[in-house]
Amino acid sequence: MAGKVYLIGAGPGAADLITVRGMRLLQSADAVLYDALVQPEMLDYCPQAVLIPVGKRCAQASTAQRFINKMLLDAAAKYGKVVRLKGGDPMLFGRAQEELAELAAAGIEYEVVPGITAALAASAEAGVSLTSRGLARNVLFATARVGEGEAGSDWVKPVMAADTAVLYMGVRQAAEVAAALLAAGMVPSTPLLIIENASLPGSREFPLTLAELPQAASWNLAGPAILLIGEVYRAKLALAEPDVRARFG
């Protein structure tokens, strides 16, 4: 009999931001397949489990998705309770659908346990709400990144229409993102906020304008970063130094 697989959201980084349900499942898991962004402290919750790294990081050596899918099937055939631990929330830019489809096709039982996504952690870190009465009534989660062999998507139009937009995996493409939004008519003075390592001790925030965004590519941010766009960040920008290069080097 095949085991059961749990896709669990590890949250944005800090080990104590995983849900209680997720932590309890980790504590009783037989095997845990975990992402590269999962903090080592979180794996302390499951010392009894076989730990299997299946990291995927942008622009770094990663485990191909097809191999992750196979490893999940193999683990379910060998262990009774298998946890697939994903950074953030499994159902948002986490390739969960591909893994769920493989499990379903193999007749393996699964359950998804949600987690805190990076956009929410970044907002809490910055102390700026994604929504604000009379200013921001909608929020868009998007990515400008296109994987190898994938067709492009028109992410610019929805970002332009959103009161607040959150771009995942967009900081490495800062120059391209800025050029696309400026070409679409977004004003250069639009306030932005980059949060690096949200929820972790080394978290940093970078208030800037759309015109300054191309400089972000040269900052060589070491941790995962998320890009937030909208008028809700105007006050945060006003408190920052006017010269991005002086602020962040």
Rank of each mutant, 00 (worst) to 15 (best):
A142L: 01
G115P: 14
M91N: 14
P224D: 05
W155M: 05
L239D: 11
A222H: 14
N138F: 01
A2M: 09
L239C: 12
A144L: 05
M1S: 13
K70P: 00
P114I: 06
A101L: 10
L210G: 04
V232M: 09
V171W: 07
N138V: 03
A29P: 02
A235H: 13
N197I: 13
L228R: 03
L181T: 11
A217S: 15
N69D: 11
A235D: 12
V82K: 03
A211G: 04
L85P: 13
A76E: 02
R245K: 13
E241H: 07
P158A: 12
T117G: 12
P201N: 12
I195A: 14
G55I: 03
G9R: 02
V32G: 02
Y168Q: 07
Y233I: 07
A179P: 00
G11R: 02
L140D: 08
A136R: 01
D74N: 08
A161G: 06
V187P: 01
V171N: 08
V139R: 05
M71G: 06
I8T: 10
R84C: 00
A76L: 05
V139Y: 06
C46N: 00
S129M: 11
E99W: 03
L228M: 15
L17F: 05
A96L: 09
K70R: 14
S129T: 08
A106D: 04
E98S: 03
E148H: 09
G115Y: 03
G202E: 15
G9E: 05
A175F: 08
K81D: 01
G55P: 06
I108S: 03
M1H: 12
L192Q: 04
V112Y: 03
A151G: 11
A198V: 13
L208H: 06
Q48L: 02
A76H: 10
L72D: 00
V177Q: 04
K70G: 05
L85T: 04
Y79C: 02
L7P: 08
M71C: 04
L17T: 01
D35R: 10
L85C: 07
P188N: 14
T19E: 10
R24S: 08
L200V: 13
W155N: 11
